[in-house]
Design a protein around this nucleic acid. Sequence first.
DNA 1: CGTTGGGTTGATCGACCTCAATAAAAGTGG
DNA 2: CCACTTTTATTGAGGTCGATCAACCCAACG
Lengths: 248, 248
Amino acid sequence: MDHSSNLTQIKVLAPCPNVHSAVDCEHCKVRALSVCAALEADELAELNRYAHPFCLSAKQNLFAQEEESTSVYNITDGAVRLYKILPDGRRQIIGFALPGDFLGLSMAERNAFSADTLTTVSACQFSRIEFSNLVDKKPQLLRRLHNLASHELSLAQDQMVILGRRTAEEKIAAFLMGLRKRWGRGSDHLSVLVPLPMTRQDIGDFLGLTVETVSRLMTKLAREKVLVIVPDGVRLLNMDRLEKLAET
Amino acid sequence: MDHSSNLTQIKVLAPCPNVHSAVDCEHCKVRALSVCAALEADELAELNRYAHPFCLSAKQNLFAQEEESTSVYNITDGAVRLYKILPDGRRQIIGFALPGDFLGLSMAERNAFSADTLTTVSACQFSRIEFSNLVDKKPQLLRRLHNLASHELSLAQDQMVILGRRTAEEKIAAFLMGLRKRWGRGSDHLSVLVPLPMTRQDIGDFLGLTVETVSRLMTKLAREKVLVIVPDGVRLLNMDRLEKLAET
DNA sequence: CGTTGGGTTGATCGACCTCAATAAAAGTGG
DNA sequence: CCACTTTTATTGAGGTCGATCAACCCAACG
């Protein structure tokens, strides 16, 4: 149950090999998705001055619950898990951050949750104070931030329904359909191939299930030809069935 | 399982008998708690012009999921339940709005959930469009809105932990302690007397439990002298025990 | 290779649900 | 105020979904 086991506390903030997507806001591939979309070209240049792009390998801790928040982050590549741990070690994953997601929407002084990388991650780091000052100068940036936070809130409320009132099978279906939609954000088509950078344990801790239950139900769905389990993900076959299971 | 059964769809927006708390922003008792706290005296006067105070009796629908959102509300007295219904009738309550709470933080075009009154409620109604325009003119109001939304998000994340990773007994304890804290907001002392304007069914639908389980565990906690069940609420006796059960 | 982390599968268990009955409270109309 | 209905709360008996415990497989990796 020790979830912090194989995470080094040292933060490897190496410069990013992929120059374009991370160093230059104007050519950033998540520009249209993230907070940055609120800014005009000249303002983007200003934002660029505050941005510190970096890369982090898989299974590294980005920040921890309760810790004072020094930075906010814009994820440009990879996946991050966000979670809370109870004193006795039980864990609840409250979300997965994907490219385009922003960590630190609330700009609160302390982190409400912990975050660590699931894959190699590229991201833009901003000083929380500097970013907060910038937000105070640019109301349209604040508005954007607020809209993103409102959307997060809405997702959190959907997750409450999933956690409180859905069966294990429905949880899995809702999770896969939801993740599929999020991966497809920014492009015009949704793929039936859903990458799963997280472990079964992570999925369980997100859905309020055990690893075994997640594994069993994935196998069941595969046996019933609803999906195929592929390396690092699933291929969805029977979308109608999944839609039915996950429907709001 | 028909949760809409005894709710009239007619919205009784009667003028409020309690003149001071609802008609005049400057003397409003929730002023320090709510969005209004962001405004100076002269701005408050402007807000006042947009405010439509009203009263609504218990068990009335305020607005419904999916419906176009025409108004936002500031609750000044009473309690409101916020919930989502699945196609098959299962219900998840996503929160209870108490005095000082604001409904419509996101200012989205459509309601993400339904709301109905648990008690007689007084509230201030604002046109969503007018309010949104006002927000665009007053960045400090937007900032306030954003802080409140961030706080809501944080509460929603705490609720995810409760729903996903806590036992029934812990859920009840966390619910009671959380509600106690919320009732105490704005005053300097927390009472051990926690009013429960909602039914056991509502509590169950908030915590992902059945009525029976809620009832059984409340009885158990009462039997163990952790609390006393009183009309329309509970009196908490063994705070340490509850704190222990609910601890983050 | 041995080790380690992740995934699957089986057997068993128990926390919470379901179904059912009753009790207590809160209207409602005479 | 009292009979009557409706809603809400409680309690019991029994069932089930997902948890727990345990074994095993497999791929990655030093």
